[in-house]
Design a protein around this nucleic acid. Structure first.
Length: 107
DNA sequence: ACAGTGACTACAT
DNA sequence: AATGTAGCCACTG
């Protein structure tokens, strides 16, 4: 796996339980603020990674679950978030701004 | 090596 | 306010 992917996973893995972050924030934390798409692609490949990546804690900048269709059908992305105490309505994380965990600030 | 692509964003109509 | 368009950059075939 490329270094970029590894770095993405490294950050995603340290997202605290019950918190979320955005693709852009991760990209920026990696020094490539404009590589937000690559972060998403990395998530898409995350199901190949051995330590399961909490990809459901990564959403777009509006707190919208844009990547929910890439999850296994039996357990939805929304369901995983709700099991962590995060409220999701119409693919939109409620109280998103206060749940947001910015790796730039926290690291 | 080149062109196509994508779980994003920001800017422009 | 709501769509449309266009950069973005690393990965893949």
């Amino acid at each position: 796996m490329s270094d970029f992917y590894s770095q993405v996973y490294e950050i995603v893995r340290v997202i605290p339980f019950g918190r979320v972050t955005t693709y852009g924030a991760i990209a920026k934390a990696l020094g490539s603020a404009r590589s937000s798409r690559l972060v998403g692609i990395a998530m898409n490949h995350s199901h190949d990674i051995i330590p399961s990546i909490p990809a459901h804690r990564v959403v777009n900048r509006n707190g919208l679950l844009t990547g929910k269709h890439h999850f296994t059908k039996d357990i939805s992305m929304q369901q995983r978030l709700e099991s962590e105490g995060i409220i999701v309505k119409d693919d939109q994380i409620q109280n998103f701004s206060s749940l947001l965990w910015d790796p730039i600030i926290e690291l």
